[in-house]
Design a protein around this nucleic acid. Sequence first.
DNA 1: GTCTATAAGCGGATAGAC
DNA 2: GTCTATCCGCTTATAGAC
Lengths: 208, 208
Amino acid sequence: MGEPRTKTRVGEANVEKILDAALTSFARFGLHGARTDQIAEAAGMSKPNLLYYFRTKEELYLAVLKRTLGVWLDALAEIDPQAEPSQALTDYISAKLEFSRAYPDQSRLFAMEIIQGAPWLKEAILRDLAPIVEAKVATLTGWIAEGRLAPVDPTTLILTIWATTQNFADFSAQTSLLTGKTLDDPAYFDRTRDAIIAIVLAGVLPRE
Amino acid sequence: MGEPRTKTRVGEANVEKILDAALTSFARFGLHGARTDQIAEAAGMSKPNLLYYFRTKEELYLAVLKRTLGVWLDALAEIDPQAEPSQALTDYISAKLEFSRAYPDQSRLFAMEIIQGAPWLKEAILRDLAPIVEAKVATLTGWIAEGRLAPVDPTTLILTIWATTQNFADFSAQTSLLTGKTLDDPAYFDRTRDAIIAIVLAGVLPRE
DNA sequence: GTCTATAAGCGGATAGAC
DNA sequence: GTCTATCCGCTTATAGAC
């Protein structure tokens, strides 16, 4: 499953340019809809030169996906068991939404891969993502046991946060068709973040 | 934009078989990844015969999408301004989740089209979906004004419900990788539904 | 309406010089 | 490492008989 041949500095710079260009195309057109010559052009090189770094389109696709998964893992891992639950969840929701705003293509591409059954990323999800989720479920379970969180199913809560935050990147086409706004509008971004936090936190914090 | 040529009874039956088969393929592989001969085979006919009913792959794709959009519209339109808010939202969430369980491919295909910017469905969304959403936002705004609903942004609330419910169909690959469960498991389905309703309703109902 | 056979073109991948 | 030129497989779509 060939790494890109990147020994030199110029090579590494090219790999980065290719990954960025590929992300845009794959997010917009999917694995099969994306065109290698278009990606090469966007990366500022010829098609054969692109294929010098990534031998096949599929290899490039997987490389793009794995780069995104890494960022996801880091954000999730940052939920701190020692923190105040409402603050920890607020921070995580904010970070996740901010990521969706800053890197909508990464969010979208990831979503498309998952929707299609994760044919390329299945292995990496099981190996890298699952253990972290398990750890965070344990954290939430602990908070619930201590009465610091309402007794909501922890896995469902995590998936709900992913669903709500990612939604605004993934479905931004629909959202902007319906509201005329995007997350690039700072006021709308803040309003959305506050609404999500209000909805999710209210359902999750213990009533006194 | 070419209706399928369906004058006879056998023709209509074939069109249905094609739409069903196409839904499966498009949801799994996307517009460009799906293969017409595979769809034809799944529909029990030859490829030229399929292309007799739908002149191009794209025409077939759009027909499949529009069939799904119709179902969506009906469910949303059913939210009754006269109803008790918590009951109306509970019913809508239940119906939406049930739809995602019963027709996961429709849910997934719709999601993929939206994520890619709705290149094929944009027009229909603006014409058919937007007005209904507008009407429902008005309903929610009324409930908020009457103090029967917490002052949450109505559009965000609707989008949140879509996000949470659809998520369990769209991301079922991820969910089942992480939990080992699918919505086909009745107990898991009920647990998920209750958790979503609890989270969303709690954040939205007015505190006394 | 349905088929077999085939055309036509796109697009990923390679050859080989520089 | 990068390019030009080119190959060739694969897939949509059509021709035309039944």
